[in-house]
Design a protein around this nucleic acid. Structure first.
Lengths: 130, 130
DNA sequence: CTAGGGCTTCCAGCTTCTGGAAGGTCAATA
DNA sequence: TATTGACCTTCCAGAAGCTGGAAGCCCTAG
């Protein structure tokens, strides 16, 4: 299967697939004309990475997950640990964003938002009322 | 004031301050020996950017905020608009992360996490049960 | 006079793609 | 058969926002 087909089946742009090959996440064989030729397993790996990335796993985590997937003797505990660590980092990010949201929405509320220059948002960023 | 002092007063690493000068966020004058010499206004701008960054504003948004700050004739509506747009993007990110969190925590819950290879997390990433 | 700490510049690398240029290949059509 | 247009190839550069490191100057204390 050519890269265009692999792209539409996996939901990844062709550019991204080439990049994934560059960094060793997939290794499709080459046809006689030099075109990449993706097997079903290659396609599985691409779709797998696509889903893992959409859950926020980093490339290195995806690599680890793929190798766990390939290892038929893995312990599910290893996978779960990886996933739990990532879940914790997601939750940390959410908390950080919620802190920003709270502070920022307070500032936005205070700002009258008309054509006068007086602005509590800029004042807040300038360190007033900290 | 030297860069070390500016760094500790603003809460930014010296490296970051040099970078901010590179991209034109601050323009400290130079002492005779070539050292950067930060004025109070420079320091204000650095601390301002530090706070804006900690609220998740991009560098370009910081630049815009700084120029609004400098413009004594600005309308507070302009600032508020910028802040509201950023707030919306924060909320969007939170929603995205919460979606990831939900999906991932469901997978984690399903995984028994022992020494057997059977793993619903890997199955989920492989597209089973989608 | 030397040692240390702070300062300078510049270059490279991190992450994860993405855009674009230059050019080879394939299938269909005139 | 010749040509067109869609596809494929490689390689280089850039996006954001720093961060680390090397090579070397400057300043102060002992």
């Amino acid at each position: 299967m050519n890269i265009g087909e692999a792209a539409s089946q996996s939901g990844l742009p062709a550019k991204t697939i080439r990049y994934y090959e560059d960094i060793g996440l997939v290794a499709p064989r080459r046809a006689a004309n030099g075109y990449r030729d993706f097997s079903d397993m290659d396609l599985h790996n691409l779709a797998f990475v696509q889903r893992a990335r959409s859950l926020g796993f980093s490339i290195e985590e995806c690599r680890a997950l793929l190798s766990l997937y390939d290892d038929r003797d893995r312990a599910s505990a290893d996978v779960k640990e990886l996933a739990k660590a990532h879940l914790a980092s997601i939750e940390e990010k959410i908390l950080g964003l919620q802190t920003m949201q709270k502070t920022l929405s307070e500032l936005v509320c205070k700002c009258h938002g008309d054509d006068r220059p007086d602005c509590p948002i800029l004042d807040g960023l300038s360190g007033e009322g900290v």
